[in-house]
Design a protein around this nucleic acid. Structure first.
Lengths: 216, 216
DNA sequence: ACCTGAACACCGTTCAAGT
DNA sequence: ACCTGAACACCGTTCAAGT
């Protein structure tokens, strides 16, 4: 039996032989989410992600201009998913009261954030489009806000919501409440067991929804 | 005239000759806030802060065990200031309705965050006490929540607030709304001009407060 | 044309030597 | 006892050489 030649360089992972088009891109995104999920945003480094996938750290640059661009891809993916969750929530309640529909959006929003904390931190952590570098990020955010605002507006039309200071301000109120609750849950300042998530969210968002509904 | 001896090493700053007890500590905290304020959390490095103050980067370790400890000091300072702002807000309205007092706390909270974005990011960014390393951070947070909860409880006692699911849940509702609004303003997802800050905050928090007050 | 290792300019933190 | 520079093990990113 011939002796095996010694490996010249021990690699962290067995190193998949090849990533075909787009596979490495997706694998890098997943690795980023995994690292952020277990060790926070600063645990994600391009080098560590590449190491885990058994590729040279330079390989990432074939798919992303730089680290920030990879994070923007994570964020964009997350925003579309969040939008989808919100749309699904209202779509499932075609005949419900405005109150119930608004609450359902809030529940979907907080639920998505609580279940995808790594996505959440990338989406709402550093302001990736601050310099206008990733305008694509604004599209799903704007659409999600549209969903909320349209819901408020149609509630006002139906006479179920107080007109107050207009649908935009009302939508911002609810967004604040939803977003604050999501933030406090993800950062563990409010502890919620998974099984009780939906009911806790309902309890905590109800005052805001009720305040929007109440005519003074 | 004798020629000046050439400086052996050009320093970034004129380098204050001496920082007496505690001064460097405070200067480092201020430098951290300045760097975070202008370039975000990742712009703060111990080396850059030391460079700005004209001291060796090792000097920081005389006052802080590591970078995280310095950030914890920033956060703690911020939490006490936030607590002070909340207390001042309710203290100024001894005879007001519970509704007005709750709104005043919210206004103070959001105003503090909006005016101190660097503090805000350190306080509510990375969870510094995750591993129980900085338990001192919990003290002012817990006290601030106490202020809120006590206010709700006394409103219920006075019959002005619906008992609902208890003062703790009501306080959490309001905290969510306050915190979400503060977050959205600091991250510039809601744009507010400084002069209109107080009135915008009032408009956006009112539905939640009203919902807590409304008896169904 | 594609991939990769060395190199560069940064970090936070540790060590060991200066006074 | 105190301060500091070199050193270490990391980064993200650039360069230039390999195939």
């Amino acid at each position: 039996m011939a002796a095996k030649p010694p490996k010249p360089k021990p690699k962290a992972a067995p190193a998949r032989e090849h990533y075909h088009h787009g596979e490495l891109r997706r694998a890098l995104i997943d690795a980023a989410l995994e690292l952020i999920g277990s060790g926070g945003p600063e645990a994600f480094t391009l080098r560590e992600a590449a190491r885990r996938l058994g590729v040279n750290h330079r390989a990432a640059y074939r798919h992303f201009a730089d680290k920030e661009t990879l994070l923007a891809a994570v964020a964009e993916q997350g925003f579309w998913a969040l939008l989808g969750a919100a749309r699904e929530a209202v779509g499932a309640l075609p005949e419900a009261t405005p109150e119930a529909r608004l609450l359902a959006i809030g529940r979907a929003y907080v639920r998505f954030c609580a279940m995808n904390p790594a996505h959440f931190r990338v989406m709402f952590g550093a302001r990736l489009n601050e310099g206008g570098r990733f305008p694509a990020l604004e599209v799903p955010i704007a659409e999600a806000f549209e969903v909320l605002q349209r819901e408020v507006a149609s509630g006002v039309e139906a006479g179920a919501l107080a007109a107050g200071t207009g649908p935009r301000m009302a939508a911002l109120s609810l967004w604040s409440a939803m977003h604050g609750l999501a933030t406090l849950i993800v950062t563990r300042r409010i502890a919620v067991r998974k099984e009780r998530l939906a009911s806790t969210v309902d309890t905590l968002l109800e005052p805001t929804v009720r305040g929007l509904v109440a005519k003074r």
